[in-house]
Design a protein around this nucleic acid. Sequence first.
DNA 1: TTCACACGTCAATGGCGTTGACGTAAGCTT
DNA 2: AAGCTTACGTCAACGCCATTGACGTGTGAA
Lengths: 236, 236
Amino acid sequence: MSERVVPEGSRQRRRPTKQGAVLSERLIVDTALRLIAQHGAEALSVRRLGAALGADPTALYRYFRNTDALLLAVADELIGRAQEGWTATGDWRTDLRAMGLRINSCYRNNPQAAALAAHRTTGRPHETRAVERILGILRGAGFPDDLAVRIYHAFVDQALAFAAQDAAAAALPTAAREKDEEVWHAVYGRLSPDTHPNIAATFPLLAADMRDSGYPFALELMLAAVEALRPTEQGG
Amino acid sequence: MSERVVPEGSRQRRRPTKQGAVLSERLIVDTALRLIAQHGAEALSVRRLGAALGADPTALYRYFRNTDALLLAVADELIGRAQEGWTATGDWRTDLRAMGLRINSCYRNNPQAAALAAHRTTGRPHETRAVERILGILRGAGFPDDLAVRIYHAFVDQALAFAAQDAAAAALPTAAREKDEEVWHAVYGRLSPDTHPNIAATFPLLAADMRDSGYPFALELMLAAVEALRPTEQGG
DNA sequence: TTCACACGTCAATGGCGTTGACGTAAGCTT
DNA sequence: AAGCTTACGTCAACGCCATTGACGTGTGAA
């Protein structure tokens, strides 16, 4: 008797599948991400992933205990990709903005992994590096530690919360997403000015604005408020 | 031939199930919320809901076209509960703050349901009323329509995103949540000042701050930034 | 050259949402 | 009060899902 899952490090026997593919943890994670990117949110299932790999679906269970373990591995990969190639400019506002937008767009590009990952603390290297960097930006900008920590918290939670929110929207089955958009016109476009004067008065603006993520503007608002809290250069 | 779903308003024949339950949209939504609260989000399935109602599972399809429609009804019920008893004070900042905190706390009190519902557009009465009210607060405060709409969008998305985030954390199984916190101390508390100087320098503050939701401070930041955008009383 | 067993495969289980057909009883009409 | 329509609860079935246990082959070590 042996454990079903063998850790990637101690894996030795690599045996090709009937269709000739040689599996590995890395290949499976990459294939999963590609599957999501190419065929949308609902395309990721054990069966389809098996098919995409050219292997029996249950071969996956030799590499991951279950689908949740697979998704965590995918999520870890995501955190790394969000920071890939990022470098500090030295301007705290530019750097914070870049960090926020990178997290947001990276998660939105990989919705259902993001939906699961955004509210977990992994404690893994990619995550700790991001925390370190953001704190560094704030402390480098002159914020005292207690304020830097509070701002860090608000900033990170906002980035992750919006990322999860946007990812969840992107991960909806096509039918549900289309219905959500249709609701805007079918319902909000037809509310009477008598009962809903504010919606009626602003509907065209509303319908246009709600198509995009609210994050960029919310991020700008936060950055502006943070700027107002910043100590002056020659303080003390 | 008839449509499978009859609108609740024009429903006339109420026929008890074999087990004696008399179904209604309201009963189904309440039962779904109770089921989720008691047994977690994953406990909500057509079959289990049918069992909890004392009816054949497929009887639900006489009331909701599919599970997505049911979920939207549940989501709207939550929005309604968040607004229960709210009245405007006339001070836009007080009113916006109250709205945000109410949504946040209501969703956190129903974490399992919130996690499912927070990112959907229902188009149902409770939702349209909330939209109308928030737009009213902003327009009443003197914001021009285009700006009011952008602020509305950022405000609502942030409230829902944080609510979902906090709800997701609250919805974690006790064991997993404890383990997450333990990992947090074990990993972040032991990072070397050489590799992670900023984390090491702020760890006690960080550990204390991260225990609570980041929303209240993020909300205050947003309100402050919005105040700065507000036209002066005697403008133009 | 042998041999243990890792790992790809297969079959099967029990869950899921959803559909179409069916019959019964509810509530209208007369 | 009788009859009719049909709403709505029920049943059976479909195709999807993740996951498990058993099996045998070929790999890599000895």
